[in-house]
Each structure stands twice: as structure tokens, then as C-alpha cells.
Design a protein around this nucleic acid. Sequence first.
DNA 1: GAGGTTGGTCTCGAAAAGAGACTGATAAGG
DNA 2: CCTTATCAGTCTCTTTTCGAGACCAACCTC
Lengths: 148, 148
Amino acid sequence: MKWDDLAAQPCSVARTAAVIGDRWTLLILRDCFLGVKRFADFQARLGIARSIVTARLNLLVEEGVLTRQPYQALPARYEYRLTDKGMDLHAIVLAIVAWGDRWQSGPEGPPHWRRHKACGCDFTPMTVCSVCSEVVTARDVEIRENLG
Amino acid sequence: MKWDDLAAQPCSVARTAAVIGDRWTLLILRDCFLGVKRFADFQARLGIARSIVTARLNLLVEEGVLTRQPYQALPARYEYRLTDKGMDLHAIVLAIVAWGDRWQSGPEGPPHWRRHKACGCDFTPMTVCSVCSEVVTARDVEIRENLG
DNA sequence: GAGGTTGGTCTCGAAAAGAGACTGATAAGG
DNA sequence: CCTTATCAGTCTCTTTTCGAGACCAACCTC
């Protein structure tokens, strides 16, 4: 199976993987949420080949996750910003961070703390049911196919 | 930067990406949560080369996300099951599904529905603050480094 | 006009993906 | 018995993609 077939599958995991299922894309998104916007900054922070940065940013723009906007005309300079679709990826990034904090960090604890501005407390993200607001784990979910 | 350097970075996104930041790994995890356990089933559902299935399953076992357990002695047959660490990835998969349902599915709607067993309703997962239980978006979060 | 900044592209060797044949132990069917 | 099937892989070989580093072009500052 190839990349393009992936996006065509009737599965939201596959379709999402076609966009973000790649180490560098994930790290670029992380940096986006940290406020990074310019080509050179992405490249410097990741320490990877420029051609890869170009390829990934282009993919994300194509997918509508980022926009490429000129912030200066002469010479032409661009910055990459999250669209609404991109901002909505925050839940995924947050879930990834939470798992990494819990299972992949050493005795020195997680490398970053996250504070919820509204309540002023450090928090860990939790996944809840949109209907009853209870916490949802793997065992609480029953999956049904959409035959429509 | 290489895969191994990734895991060593002081960033939970990077460390998690080192485990699941790959198309196939993500799809294998999806299948795990759907109850798939055997080598041949993973291979058939994904339609990818056996060698890749082997490599990915081994990685996940090494990382402690899956266990490889014999379910039959003669001939030796194994099955792959999620550990607690693996079960905890459910929040990530759920967030990925939710995003894919919302942004990557066509007019026919999402390919699957998820019902919360506890309340009996179809739901979408939401990310909330562990302290105040309010929904958290990208703009609600302030990040601080752990200098300890 | 030397050197720096920004946002790329080009080239080429290395790594990974992917197809498919092969293995080895066992069981089931005729 | 002999054939075929199951299961969990391994091995080989070709194609594709990654990734590092050099190069380029337009502008700016000193």
C-alpha cells in the first residue's frame, strides 16, 4: 500500500496518518503550536535537511493545515500559520504530549509543564465523552461501521 | 537527525514520535484497538510487506506497548496484546480519529461511529483540563519549561 | 563589495519500503 | 500417505524515498 492509497481508505486513522503520520510532520506541528512560523526557524530547531522541511511544509499547506502567507514583499518572505483545521490538531498533540510525559520521561519528570490559562493550574489533558462528560478509556468504547 | 536522537530529545512529542511517528505503526495500533492480535491478521488488513509488519511489531514490543505471548506451543504461535502502556495510547488514537472524522471524511460522514458504553450514546472525544474539567483548546494553554 | 539573512532547489549516496519466494512445523482432507 | 492449508516469520531483490550538504538568488548592512 502506498501513501496515496492510505488517504483513500475508509478509516479516519488512515486518512489522518496520511497527513501527520511522519516524525518530522509531527515535530513541525509541535513547533507551530509553540509559535514558530518561519522556514529558517523550523529548519534550525529540527536540525534536518532543508529539502525535508520544504516537502513537509508544502504537504501541510496542501492539506490545509497551514497557510503560506507573505509577511514582506521585497524580497518575498513567507510565514506558515495554522489554519482552523490545523489548530484543531491541538487535541492530538496534547494527547501525544500527555502520553510521552507519562511513559517516556525519566526521573527528572516531563520536560515541559502546561498551564490552563482559564483556571491557572498545571494540568494533564483528559479525554471525555461529549455527551456525558465522563472520562473515556479504550474499554468504554464500542465501534460500529457507518453503512450509510 | 536520526530516529535514535529523536527519542533522546527533551520533548515528549519527539519521544512519542519515536514510538508511533510512522504510518504503519499508527495503523497497527488502530487494529490492536479493534481486537486484532495475530501476525497474519495485521498483515492481511494492512496489505503491506510481511517484513514491515515484523519490524513494526518488534519495535512496539521493545517499547513496551505490546507483548508477544505464545497462545499455542506446537507449533509455536504468538499473539500481540496491548500492555497498559499501549492501552494508554487510546487517547491519541481517539484524538486522531476525531480529527479525521471532522476534517478528512467526505459527505457520507465518518466511516465509523463510536458509542460510549457507560452512557449508551454516540460521542466525539473532547479534551478537557484535569483540574477544572473545562474544554482545552490551543489558545488556552501556556507552556513552561521544567528546569528541574 | 564582503558578508549575512532568508527561502528555497539540486544532486547524490544511504536507508527504507514493497513484492514475492522460501522455510518449517503442524494439522486436516481424501 | 500425499496434498494442501495455516501460521509466523525470514531472505532477496528492486524501487522509492530520505536526508546531508552544496548551491542559488534576492536583498540588506557595513
